[in-house]
């Protein structure tokens, strides 16, 4: 197996809620190899979103380590972390585009953060928009786009910084099955054309099946099992994995109907 690029050691995170504490992650250890499309699947409340948000420290874990390319992010200073984040792209369930900026300026935004001159910014952004099939939408505003188109803009935006890691937090969960497929195909073609490690968080087995090579099954804040997608589909060992596979079958039936 290839060497791990992202390593998570004994990661724990507890949220304090009104009715007591919620342990979102309980000492999670996971290693994600370089240049893989790695899936993390679990039902809602399994802790998968917390896990991915810990990978770029949007969420600060209570204990444990997040090691990327040999460096523990938790030991980085504020400025170092900020610069490291520029190379860890993230896309979201609700796209999170700037609603008051047009599509082109949205894609320019990460370049602006890095202080790239305006002319180069626009050239690069247009090139990326063409890449995601939205070359003709540069002047449109997010409110004029469909969900799938918005996610394409978010993908163009995230690629602007040429990240080495792409985190996808339920990136297709707000989209219909057809659009999900096109977004996954886009991610796949990005993966094929540039060396990148993709981490996909989802509750849908078909997303894992479609695109991932390896998968970790998360339940109750712990990793139930982890391995190659084909292996887990063929021979699920944990109850959580079996339940998720069962859900996929019902999903497919409802799609037909």
């Amino acid at each position: 197996m290839e060497t791990a690029y992202i390593e998570v050691h004994n990661l724990s995170k507890t949220y304090s809620a009104k009715n007591g504490n919620v342990e979102a992650l309980k000492s999670v250890t996971l290693s994600i190899p370089k240049n893989e499309i790695f899936g993390v699947i679990g039902l809602s409340g399994a802790g998968k979103s917390t896990l991915v948000r810990c990978l770029n420290l949007l969420e600060k874990p209570d204990s444990g380590e997040v090691v990327i390319d040999g460096k523990n992010l938790l030991t980085l200073g504020k400025e170092q972390l900020r610069l490291r984040r520029q190379k860890i792209g993230m896309i979201f369930q609700h796209f999170n585009l700037l609603e008051q900026q047009n599509v082109l300026d949205n894609v320019c935004f990460p370049l602006e953060i890095r202080g790239i001159p305006i002319k180069q910014r626009k050239e690069k952004a247009l090139e990326l928009l063409q890449k995601v099939g939205l070359g003709d939408k540069a002047e449109a505003y997010p409110s004029q786009l469909s969900g799938g188109q918005k996610q394409r803009v978010a993908i163009a935006r995230v690629l602007a910084n040429e990240p080495d890691i792409l985190l996808c937090d339920e990136a297709t969960s707000a989209l219909d099955p057809e659009t999900t497929k096109t977004i996954l195909n886009l991610l796949k073609s990005i993966y094929d054309s540039m060396g990148i490690t993709i981490v996909i968080i989802t509750h849908e087995m078909r997303v894992i099946q479609e695109i991932c090579t390896q998968v970790a099954v998360l339940d109750g804040g712990t990793v139930q099992e982890c391995g190659s997608v084909t292996e887990i589909f063929k021979n699920p060992k944990s109850r959580a994995a079996r339940r998720l596979l069962l859900m996929r079958e019902t999903e497919e039936m409802s799609d037909v109907g």
Binding site: R82, L83, R85, N96
Partner: peptide, 14 residues
């Protein structure tokens, strides 16, 4: 929206 702010943080914005 908190999400847009988080997106900016994830891009490494000051």
């Amino acid at each position: 929206s908190q999400g847009v702010i988080e997106a900016a943080i994830s891009m490494g914005a000051k």
